[in-house]
Design a protein around this nucleic acid. Structure first.
Lengths: 104, 104
DNA sequence: ATCAAAGTTAGCTAATTAGGTAACATTTTG
DNA sequence: CAAAATGTTACCTAATTAGCTAACTTTGAT
């Protein structure tokens, strides 16, 4: 496999522990890395947790598997509105931002 | 004033309490709202906390006060890369995402 | 090994952001 | 009030995303 998704396994086991409970909130936090921007990995993880194919996800949020693939592989920048649409309509999720600033 | 920034005051007082400390991390969390998307308000708050004008901020991150104004007033969608540039280079901050999903 | 499903890549086009300049409006300061 | 600083809006252009189709590749199942 070309790509590695570091926190997939740990997150997966966490999911497994909670599996069966209803109404459980998954919180997947993505911290922007120093080198590369791996939003794609987060989206791919979330999609797989829900057992969706790229095509199924694409259908839910009105795009194509082609585009989902590009996003997951960080092949393109992405608009905020598009990111939110994928998370909302595609994954049924809720996006939050946090900004940390070190005061001088 | 046309716009209101609800959490500016509370955040401001919190800042005032901590003022003078060095190395303190401000965590401004923005929860995407139901109705409208107020990323602009968050960015404006953060800018003002640092005592920057739109023009000063624009200089630091290689854009114009015109553009900063448009973003703060949610007059335009924004690319992720641009958002990150403003937060990094303009505000010296660090952006994090979180996705909450309610399991079915 | 073969077939089908899933994922990736390549073009092209249309829609939208980002950059630039200038004019206008609002707020602050003296 | 007057002047300066700050912020907003308008318009245009260039760069980039998003959408679309099709071909190619990889993975998984039988």
């Amino acid at each position: 496999m070309k790509k590695e998704h570091k926190h997939l396994t740990s997150f997966k086991s966490h999911l497994d522990q909670q599996y069966g409970q209803r109404g459980t909130i998954i919180r997947e936090e993505y911290e922007e890395g120093f080198e590369a921007f791996k939003l794609g990995a987060m989206l791919q993880d979330l999609r797989k947790e829900q057992g969706l194919t790229q095509e199924q996800l694409a259908l839910k949020c009105g795009t194509t598997k082609t585009y989902i693939s590009r996003i997951e592989n960080n092949a393109s920048d992405i608009r905020l509105s598009t990111l939110m649409r994928i998370i909302h309509e595609g994954l049924g999720g809720h996006l939050k931002f946090k900004v940390d600033i070190l005061l001088k």
